[in-house]
Amino acid sequence: KRYRAVYDYSAADEDEVSFQDGDTIVNVQQIDDGWMYGTVERTGDTGMLPANYVEAI
């Protein structure tokens, strides 16, 4: 699945990823209600991200 960031996010922990509004997130997997795991296409960084900061595309 592919998602697009709708807000900027700065990683708060080493297992999270930072991204900017408009970034595409690929290979996304749902972890639980609030978190997903995926790769930021622009940077190649992979990690956890907050589900409410992205939307499906």
Rank of each mutant, 00 (worst) to 15 (best):
K1F: 07
R2T: 10
Y3M: 09
Y3R: 03
R4Q: 08
R4M: 10
R4K: 10
A5R: 00
A5I: 01
A5D: 02
V6E: 04
Y7M: 15
Y7Q: 15
Y7H: 14
Y7D: 10
D8L: 05
D8K: 08
Y9A: 02
Y9V: 01
Y9N: 03
Y9M: 01
S10M: 13
S10E: 14
A11G: 08
A11P: 06
A11D: 02
A12M: 14
A12L: 13
A12S: 11
A12C: 14
D13Q: 14
D15T: 15
D15S: 15
V17G: 01
S18A: 04
F19Q: 00
F19A: 01
F19K: 02
Q20C: 14
Q20I: 13
D21H: 15
D21S: 15
D21F: 15
G22I: 02
D23H: 02
D23R: 03
T24V: 15
T24S: 09
V26C: 10
N27Y: 08
N27I: 13
N27T: 06
N27S: 08
V28D: 01
V28E: 02
V28C: 12
V28K: 03
V28F: 04
Q29H: 14
Q30H: 13
Q30R: 13
Q30G: 08
Q30T: 11
Q30I: 14
I31P: 04
I31N: 06
I31R: 11
I31L: 13
D33S: 11
D33A: 12
G34W: 14
W35I: 05
W35M: 05
W35N: 04
M36I: 12
M36K: 04
Y37P: 03
Y37T: 09
Y37A: 06
G38P: 03
G38V: 02
G38F: 00
G38S: 00
T39Y: 05
T39E: 08
V40G: 02
V40Y: 00
E41Q: 09
E41D: 07
T43M: 02
G44C: 08
G44R: 05
D45A: 13
D45G: 07
T46G: 04
T46D: 04
G47H: 02
G47W: 00
M48Q: 06
M48N: 09
M48E: 03
M48V: 09
M48S: 06
L49R: 01
P50Q: 06
P50F: 04
A51V: 11
A51F: 08
N52V: 10
N52L: 10
N52P: 09
Y53I: 06
Y53H: 10
V54D: 01
E55W: 06
E55T: 11
E55Y: 08
A56G: 08
A56C: 11
I57G: 05
